[in-house]
Nucleic acid binder design. Structure first.
Length: 957
DNA sequence: CGCGTCACG
DNA sequence: ACGTACGTGACGCGA
């Protein structure tokens, strides 16, 4: 067989005599000319594609049931099959670097020296990927001493005469190989989409055609390979230089025509230049024993392929392999596809997992007679605990009416008590269930039990105790995962649940829950209780392997559920009359400002539209634009503040923006959120949202009520006690995050400063500016430095904040770290440990995964490092206040108090109290808050709590 | 529904 | 692969 007449292995079968209309349009433009076209040669950059697959699927966290990661294999196979399916290559090979040092390392010691080792989770998949490629019959090309780039470069050059060459890679460096017969297939933004890159695309994307790409890369250097370029010359300068002078030689011949800065940089670079050029040049002329024949696929080995995919539990990939490679499944492979037992977590395709229906293998009972209910009640009362779920008429707990309750005592069996049954109406039936639902010896399991607690409260029942909440368990195991029941069932149980929308329909076609057939509703309700109980077992098993996470659940999250439910149910009162007065004032001011802005700009436009505003400021008024967003000019506070020095309209715009914000978000919005039944505003405290362990608040968000500006303070004044004569009492931790940072650092100077009750920012200023006399400006700067430490400090960020150069900011940071060596080493150690383990923890053991610490991309890696530095601090503060809330709530319930807890704002708790009780409440709250810090591990640094009381939230501070 | 903006800790 | 300090949620605009 010769290369030009043979049928490619992936070609359409020979039996197809007539070309069939292809359901997938042929992406290869050359195929438009049928018949004589050259064969297609596809060269895959293996490692780069593996990396891409690994990071693209990272958040899917795919693994086998025993925890071996499989995301990279899945992603790689998926891309590979896509290529085969869509382009039907005549020749196809996957290349990898060889492990030996290459000539580049020899010429330049620091080559790729900044590159972190691949994460273990990726390394462990490389063997499987290699096996996959071989089992598919695809040639694997590795040559000792050469990188994949050079192999691809040489093959591309060698065969471009005889083939249409496609290089499959996300790597921009390969752009230099693009040529008449050579193009790049670059993975697109969306999974499994490829972008065809030819000469024109290279030129428009990089400002230089492929022929000039090596020179461009030489000038700019390649940070990902640790190759330096000419200092101060970026892609923009480089491409304009090349456009003018054609090549590096041309540029160096015309140095005298360049700006002094560029000239100087190029002169310094002159000596290094040849080496850099050699390093960034991909070899195209290696003497390799590569024949086209060697790049031709051989027969796939279905047995090996299916054995591999069965072991990796990649069922959908196995299914695709059948279609794409046009092979028959081996006889034994039916066993492979049965490999996942009904209860097994499916590790396959996160988008389309083959799941077992949730109810399969379970027994669901509709309880719609008095006798059946009596029997169930007995069973429940003699149980040690059960899973429970309420079905209601609305997602809003204040509107919701019960349609039924489901229970599951043992996995695989559930009961649904239907309140549409005559004689089993909600009110009387719930009353009969009350002792059971409130029985402290019978633990309750469920998904988001706060919802059920709130619904049942309306029926006079205090559902308790919360023994296990599946949503929160998932949150504690991995705060950034998804925690809804449907996803949890798919991930942990391999079960496909019936969704609420499937029950009642969507949009206008949706029906009321009482219109659903009772049997269907029962199956749905039973499913949820059944799944919750099964999930508990699956999640508990994982928690038991990490005792500290089980502790976070039991000590912090589970006990907090009923505390938050009580706070939400209580709600907070709003002085609507006060807000109405503010609204009038603000509207008047806005009218005035609008007129002034129109006059100053000479235009009438929508000030609320950043697009229109940007157009007026920068196109019409021609003010200097310094910052851009993805969509146009930036008009944010920083930009407007700078413009205020140049044009008076900017300060009016700032004022306008501020008023508009407060009006829209608070003054007008809050009164609309008052519940007509209670006359109060009831926020939702979300317990499974944030990556750090904090709560969040929504509908409305009461954790971002203004306080910084004058008008903001007025808005706070509108938060008042519900009973006339009562007071609001606020208790907040003073500098809790800095104290935690000091504790974690173990730095003696820092700890001493807190022990001496010093003004911490002034103390920092004294140290970093090395002076006894601290000016207000020095204190301000020190305060920013302290904040920077909490957020994962970087010169760029500090420079922005302080309006100084990055160099000056770096000096300040260096001084700080030198003076507080404990802080420096603890931050370093935190990152190092997290890099090794893959996650970072708080003092209580709460965990957050930070896989990006190993990213080859420096920006992504740095962002992950900041997250790693901040999370133990923010997370510990969250743990501490959660612990405090639990203790405070316990004392409030003891019967000695009439006070209630209303809100939590990260480091502050807000209470309503009768004046007679104020002093006692203060003492109790302060004591518990201070103790909580010690219980959570803050032992060397003192923790202080400030309290205040008044007739509104502003005065409570 | 994504984006830009800005309120809070 | 991304765009510059950490963590949130809500608003109005405009495609």
């Amino acid at each position: 067989m010769t290369s030009d007449n043979q049928m490619g292995l992936f070609d359409a079968p020979a039996t197809e005599t007539q070309p069939q209309p292809d359901p997938v349009p042929d992406k290869n433009p050359d195929n438009a000319i049928q018949g004589r076209q050259k064969p297609g040669l596809f060269l895959l950059d293996g490692m780069a594609m593996v990396y891409r697959a690994f990071y693209a699927l990272q958040q899917a966290r795919m693994s086998t049931r025993d925890g071996a990661p499989t995301g990279a294999v899945f992603g790689f196979a998926s891309s590979l099959f896509r290529i085969i399916e869509e382009y039907r290559p005549d020749y196809l090979a996957v290349t990898f670097d060889s492990p030996e040092k290459t000539f580049r390392h020899e010429k330049y010691e620091a080559y790729k020296a900044n590159r972190p080792a691949p994460p273990n989770d990726l390394i462990s998949q490389l063997g499987d990927i290699r096996e996959l490629i071989l089992a598919c019959g695809i040639p694997l090309v590795i040559m000792p001493g050469f990188e994949a780039d050079d192999l691809i470069g040489t093959a591309a050059r060698k065969f471009e005469e005889s083939c249409r060459v496609f290089i499959v890679t996300p790597d921009k460096d390969m752009s230099q190989l693009v040529h008449d017969g050579v193009r790049i297939l670059k993975p697109g933004k969306r999974q499994n989409e490829f972008e065809l890159v030819g000469s024109a695309e290279v030129a428009s994307q990089f400002g230089a055609p492929p022929e000039q790409f090596i020179d461009l890369l030489t000038l700019t250097g390649d940070t990902s390979d640790n190759i330096p370029g000419a200092k101060g010359i970026g892609p923009k300068t480089a491409s304009s230089l090349l456009e003018k002078y054609g090549s590096l030689e041309g540029i160096y011949a015309n140095l005298d025509k360049l700006t002094p800065k560029t000239r100087q940089s190029l002169e310094v670079f002159r000596e290094m230049m040849p080496l850099v050029r050699e390093l960034v040049t991909i070899r195209t002329n290696l003497d390799l024993p590569l024949t086209l024949e060697a790049l031709h696929a051989s027969k796939p080995d279905p047995e090996a392929l299916f054995a591999l995919l069965a072991r990796l539990e990649l069922k959908s990939i196995a299914a695709r392999a059948l279609a794409v490679l046009r092979i028959a499944a081996p006889a034994a492979s039916s066993a492979a596809s049965d490999a996942s037992a009904p209860t097994a977590a499916s590790a396959d395709d996160p988008g389309d997992p083959p799941l077992t229906p949730a109810g399969e293998g379970s027994e669901y009972h509709l309880v719609d007679t008095g006798e059946a209910f009596d029997t169930l009640l007995e069973k429940l009362e003699s149980s040690g605990g059960f899973a429970v779920d309420t079905e209601t008429t609305s997602l809003d707990t204040f509107e919701a009416e019960l349609a039924g309750i489901s229970f599951s005592i043992k996995p695989g069996e559930a009961f649904f008590v239907y309140f549409g049954t005559p004689g089993l109406d909600a009110k009387t039936t719930v009353a009969r269930l009350k002792p059971l639902l409130e029985n402290p010896a019978i633990g309750k399991t469920g998904q988001n039990l706060k919802y059920d607690i709130l619904v049942l409260k309306k029926y006079g029942v205090e559902l308790a105790p919360v023994e296990f909440d599946t949503m929160l368990a998932s949150y504690v195991l991995d705060p950034e995962a998804r925690h809804n029941l449907d996803d949890l069932a798919a991930l942990h149980l391999g079960r496909q649940t019936v969704k609420y929308s499937e029950l009642v329909g969507t949009g206008k076609a949706a029906i009321g829950i009482f219109e659903v057939e009772p049997q269907k509703l029962s199956d749905y309700g039973c499913q949820d209780a059944d799944i919750a109980l099964k999930l508990r077992h699956a999640l508990e098993e994982r928690l038991e392997k990490n005792p500290e996470l089980l502790d976070v659940c039991r000590q912090l999250e589970f006990p907090l559920v009923s505390v938050l439910a009580r706070m939400e149910h209580e709600g907070v009162s709003i002085d609507t009359a006060h807000l109405a007065t503010l609204a009038v004032k603000v509207n008047e001011e806005l009218v005035g400002l609008t007129e002034r802005i129109y006059e100053a700009t000479g235009e009438t436009f929508n000030i609320d539209s950043p697009k229109q505003l940007g157009h007026i400021l920068f196109d019409v008024l021609k003010l200097p634009a310094r910052k851009a967003t993805k969509t146009g000019y930036s008009t944010n506070v920083q930009v407007l503040e700078e413009l205020a020095l140049l044009h008076p309209v900017a300060s009016d715009l700032l004022e306008y923006r501020s008023l508009q914000k407060l009006k829209g978000t608070y003054i007008e919005a809050l009164p609309k959120m008052i519940n007509p039944l209670t006359g109060r505003v009831h926020t939702s405290f979300n317990q499974s949202i944030t990556a750090t362990g904090r709560l969040s608040s929504s509908n409305p968000n009461l954790q971002n009520i203004p306080i910084r500006t004058e008008l903001g303070k007025e808005i706070r004044r509108a938060f008042i006690p519900s009973s006339p004569g009562n007071l609001l009492l606020s208790a907040d931790y003073s500098q809790i995050e800095l104290r935690i940072a000091a504790e974690l650092s173990g730095d003696p100077m820092l700890i001493e400063a807190f022990r001496n009750r010093e003004d911490i920012h002034a103390a920092t200023a004294r140290v970093i500016f090395d002076t006894a006399e601290v000016t207000p400006d020095m204190r301000r700067k020190a305060k920013e430095v302290n904040f920077g430490v909490l957020y994962g400090i970087q010169p760029f960020g500090l420079a922005q904040r302080l309006g100084i150069t990055q160099k000056e900011a770096k000096e300040i940071i260096d001084t700080y770290m030198a003076k507080y060596p404990g802080m420096f080493s603890s931050l370093q150690a935190t990152i190092e440990e997290a890099r090794k383990r893959g996650y970072v923890t708080t003092l209580m053991g709460r965990r957050r995964y930070v896989p990006d610490l190993n990213s080859p991309n420096a920006n992504i890696r740095k962002a992950a490092e900041r997250v790693t530095m901040n999370t133990p601090i923010q997370g510990a503060a969250a743990d501490i206040i959660k612990y405090a809330m639990r203790s405070v709530s316990r004392e409030l319930k003891s019967g000695e108090f009439r006070s209630v807890m209303l809100l939590q704002v990260h480091d502050e708790l807000l209470f309503e109290t009768p004046p007679a009780e104020e002093a006692r409440l203060r003492e109790m709250v302060e004591r518990n808050m201070v103790e909580a810090a010690a219980k959570c591990g803050v032992k060397s640094v003192p923790v202080e709590v400030e309290t205040g009381a008044g007739k509104n939230w502003l005065e409570a501070h």
